[in-house]
Simulated assay, not measured.
Amino acid sequence: MQTNQPLRTAFGQRIRNLRKEQGISQEAFADKCGVMRTYMSRIETGAANPSLEAAKVIADGLGISLSDLLQGL
Score class of each variant (00 low, 15 high):
Met1Thr: 10
Gln2Pro: 10
Gln2Gly: 05
Thr3Arg: 12
Thr3Gly: 09
Asn4Phe: 02
Gln5Lys: 13
Gln5Gly: 03
Gln5Ala: 15
Pro6Ala: 12
Pro6Phe: 09
Leu7Pro: 09
Leu7Trp: 09
Arg8Asn: 15
Thr9Tyr: 13
Ala10Gly: 00
Phe11Leu: 15
Gln13His: 15
Arg14Gln: 13
Asn17Thr: 12
Asn17Ser: 11
Leu18Met: 12
Lys20Tyr: 08
Glu21Cys: 02
Gly23Lys: 14
Ser25Asp: 07
Ser25Gln: 04
Gln26Ala: 15
Gln26Glu: 15
Glu27Arg: 06
Glu27His: 07
Ala28Arg: 05
Phe29Glu: 05
Asp31Met: 11
Asp31Val: 09
Asp31Gln: 14
Asp31Phe: 05
Asp31Ser: 09
Gly34Ser: 08
Gly34Lys: 04
Gly34Met: 11
Val35His: 00
Arg37Thr: 04
Thr38Phe: 05
Tyr39Trp: 06
Tyr39Cys: 03
Met40Lys: 01
Ser41Phe: 12
Ser41Asn: 10
Ser41Asp: 06
Ser41Lys: 05
Ser41Leu: 06
Arg42Ala: 07
Ile43Arg: 08
Ile43Pro: 11
Glu44Ser: 04
Thr45Asp: 05
Thr45Val: 09
Thr45Tyr: 02
Gly46Lys: 07
Ala48Tyr: 03
Asn49Ser: 13
Asn49His: 09
Pro50Gln: 09
Pro50Tyr: 10
Ser51Leu: 09
Ser51Pro: 02
Leu52Cys: 14
Leu52Asp: 11
Glu53Pro: 00
Ala54Lys: 13
Ala54His: 10
Ala54Phe: 14
Ala55Ile: 06
Ala55Pro: 00
Ile58Arg: 15
Ile58Asp: 13
Ile58Phe: 14
Ala59Ile: 08
Asp60His: 10
Asp60Tyr: 05
Asp60Thr: 10
Asp60Glu: 11
Leu62Ser: 01
Leu62Gln: 00
Leu62Cys: 01
Leu62Met: 00
Leu62Val: 00
Gly63Pro: 00
Gly63Ser: 03
Ser65Asp: 07
Ser65Met: 06
Leu66Cys: 10
Ser67Gly: 00
Ser67Met: 03
Asp68Trp: 06
Asp68His: 14
Leu69Cys: 07
Leu69Met: 12
Leu69Val: 12
Leu69Tyr: 12
Leu70Ile: 11
Gln71Arg: 06
Gln71Trp: 01
